[in-house]
Amino acid sequence: MSEAVLENIRTRRVVRQMSDEPVKRAQIEAILEAARWAPSGGNLRPNRYIVIEDAETRRLIRLVSPGMFQKAPVLILICTNWEVAAEHHLPPTDRALLIDIGTAAQTMMLAAHALGLASGPVTSYSKEAVKMILNLPEAYSPEMFICIGHKAEAAQPGMRAWKKISWRDLTHWERFNSD
């Protein structure tokens, strides 16, 4: 069981070419339910999720999102609800707000992968244009899209790594020496 989880983590890749095949409603709900279980600073749950399936709305969002290469059948927008932050006196710069977006995003992408679906995060879009297109409430800021769909047959491999890294390159054990 735990090996299956580790394998799921290792084999998830961002997919930037998706087919038109629709995603089942139950699968979308399973992904959202997974996000509900992502860790959240102070258990405050400031994230709100907007699901977009409507074709014309997705088209408009893509037009103002230069970093959205996928034509995904489902977009999940992670928003921060600033009313929740204010209610709990979290300053706007509190990094828990950003970390919460990250924990939800990764949880949703791993859930999608476990369901046999492809996914990709996108932060390169105009927040102002997205707010207008979705008519977002004033308190919501659009923080990250998760594109969900099925990998296209002719999908290209993802972006080449800047350099080969292993977990060892990213890790330091114990205290740093002073010299």
Partner: peptide, 13 residues
């Protein structure tokens, strides 16, 4: 107009 959307939003991001 689609191309303008791409250019203007690219400038912003």
């Amino acid at each position: 107009v689609e191309l303008l959307a791409l250019l203007i939003t690219s400038a912003r991001i």
